[in-house]
Design a protein around this nucleic acid. Structure first.
Lengths: 130, 130
DNA sequence: TTCTTTGCAAAAGGTTTGCAGATGA
DNA sequence: TCATCTGCAAACCTTTTGCAAAGAA
């Protein structure tokens, strides 16, 4: 097994994800990281995301047909996708009560769940104000 | 505006989606439709799905990184993705109470929501039975 | 007949891989 | 030093588009 080294590229990408208020798209990550690493190639971004995912430091979130990435270890949470600005936020309140093992109508045994809410984020709701 | 004609390809594809118990992947649709239309090209499948989507007769469901399609007009519902067999089912019971307009903690105005449950479908739960 | 639709193949968009030079330990 | 990592470009895979022939009305 190869040993994973610490590099400037990996540090920048994982820091970006740690500090983001919600999951980020690959293109976003590439663009933001380029502010610090102008020559950063997209292949490195993909390879780093794959590595961090294997290390369980981040994980993919498939939303609106896009693959977004977010840091792990932020506890049980869901997402809010703003229909105005397109940004995705992390919600720390869960709207469902479905402990693992719950038997759902129809005989489906629930192990996990995902909830995504759509609507207007606080900023857009204010800007478009009544 | 061009007039949309009725063709064998379109009939077969929309019938498949109407009769399915859950959303289908593009590859699945192509494969199943080929049983009746051996020369059916993948481009026609994509064009038909796009057309039916514009007509609001079907709509895409983005699940597990795949784009699935399902017929519309089946009321408010959610999906259950079986972690054993991979099939996706439609659930007619909704586990959340979030009417449009609800203000979620943090100031997010909810317009819609999507819920996906993961676990074992009745068939797999039985097969693997205790 | 006339205009739309189809199948095929080429193109496009996003992700992955091969490789030689750069880099971390 | 020397195996790992990076940037670049080519390869891949899924989806879209161009075009001539087939089909609907």
């Amino acid at each position: 097994m190869t040993v994973s080294r610490s590099t400037r590229q990996r540090d920048v990408i994982s820091r970006l994800l740690e500090e983001a208020p919600g999951p980020l798209a690959v293109g976003d990550i590439h663009e933001r990281a380029r502010a610090e690493l102008p020559r950063l190639g997209i292949a490195t971004v993909y390879r780093t995301l794959k590595l961090l995912t294997e290390q369980r430091r981040i994980h993919p979130v498939l939303l609106d047909g896009e693959t977004l990435y977010e840091a792990t270890g932020k506890g049980h949470h869901h997402h809010f996708s703003c229909t105005r600005c397109g940004k995705v936020f992390t919600l720390h309140t869960c709207p469902v009560a479905l402990p693992s093992g719950t038997v759902y109508p129809g005989g489906f045994i629930v192990e996990a769940h995902e909830v995504t809410l759509y609507g207007q984020c606080p900023t857009c709701a204010e800007g478009q104000g009544v």
